[in-house]
Design a protein around this nucleic acid. Sequence first.
DNA 1: GGGCCGTACTG
DNA 2: CAGTAC
DNA 3: GCCC
Length: 503
Amino acid sequence: MIFDGYKICVLSGFAGFTKMSGEIISKNISKNGGTIIPLPQARNQTSNLTLIIVPEQSDEKMILKVMNLTSLPSCPLVSPNWAINSTNSKTLHDPNDYQIKKTELPIKRQSPQTYQSPPQSPFEAYKTLPLVPLSNSPEMNRTQTNPILNQNNTRLHDDLLQNKDKYMFTKEQPNLNEHITSVLEILMENYFLLRDRGRGFAYRSAIIVLKSHPEKIICGDQVGNLQKVGKKIKKKIQEILETGTLKRVKAMDEQSRLKAIKEFSKIWGVGSATADKLFTLGYRTLDDLRKNIPQFLNDNQRICLELFDEIKERIPREEVKEISDQVVEYAKLLLPNKDIEANTCGSYRRGKETCGDIDILLTFDDVLENKLFLRELVDYLIEKKVVTHVLILSENCKKHESFTFEGIAKKPDGLHRRLDIKIYPRKYYAWALMHFTGSANFNRSIRLFAKNKGLKLTDEGLFPAIRSHGETICGGNLVECYTEEDIFRLFDMPYKPPEQRDL
DNA sequence: GGGCCGTACTG
DNA sequence: CAGTAC
DNA sequence: GCCC
């Protein structure tokens, strides 16, 4: 029995750790040999306790209040996850790994920060010089001052500090609720494919909350107070916990329309609307499509249909690196005098073993003065038989100060692979790096957060923004950041390495 | 009752 | 503008 | 579908 000899007190019913969860955990501890000491008893004999389980999000003050003590017991305070993980794995985890630090506020398992602080934190710059940086730059007129920020520019800082814990992008646990989110994700995808965007959005945000929830949900009551999880979704979760699936999903699986849309929309350039149109025209499978290609498919869609079986394959990490290295090597060859900086972004940068595509970001000095460089690079890559197809080559950088290539690449002996190359000026590089590293859900969360603060976060920076009828009336560059660490510091969040940005 | 990330390209 | 993509 |  894994908990033999353990005398444990479980403190629940506050700081997000529900009574129900506490009871389930207590039951499991008893079942596995441990002794549960109820609170009144525990209060009088704290020296007898092996440890106390307290909410992940609790602090010293709350615990003293709940226990009605004036000083904390000497035994360790441990997260509920210790008991949950030990029970699930049927092995005793080291409680020291789950200790709640008594003096700190909410616990964050923060990875070591290896970067060097810049001479002046960007946020300090922002506090004293609200809209500085680009005021000297002649090319843009986006440096008008913003009334809101000039009024009281420390307000934003306080706001960011106060609210950061409410947002999931500051959480860093693995997904403990895969058993639920995997099913809900199917439902979400189905709703987007059926163009029921409302439900799509609803499930998407609920899934993000469930994925970053710090405890494994084994009982419907645990989701009672979760953001974005309302009555209907709670009911779905209960059904999943009981049956492992959803009747709704099973019924959807039978729909021929949905089945066809799902298939067609895997083609790059074909989305839910086009896929639906194809179904209406009588197409049911990719083979139907290949045999009789409809007129309205454009060149890109045709190319990607033809190469479908190759493009759909995941790309091993090593191959992503090989192709990236090749591209960067040629870029350096074409601009030997420039100090080219390059990153392969997307899931590669987040450390995945396989990737859906290859996403390369480049910068060097005077990007905007070298308008033809991307075209030259792509031509060279075609000549060298690295690139086989061009889907999009955007050189119109009037509004957006960057260059984009989207196309298809191939190693001599390999499959066709989706390749993106983007070139941004240095002053946007860190913002672009964060944008293209994702994940998409990470971008959504952090951008929504910024938006709620009257700001606008994009691949080119963080801007003050007053929105009216969906349009941004007042822009202006907030501050320049040259590293991702600076961006996180600006938000007053602990740095999250790319591997931890999967949401 | 309207938004749900913000932006760019295609046709 | 709708559709699609990053 | 959920939240303002």
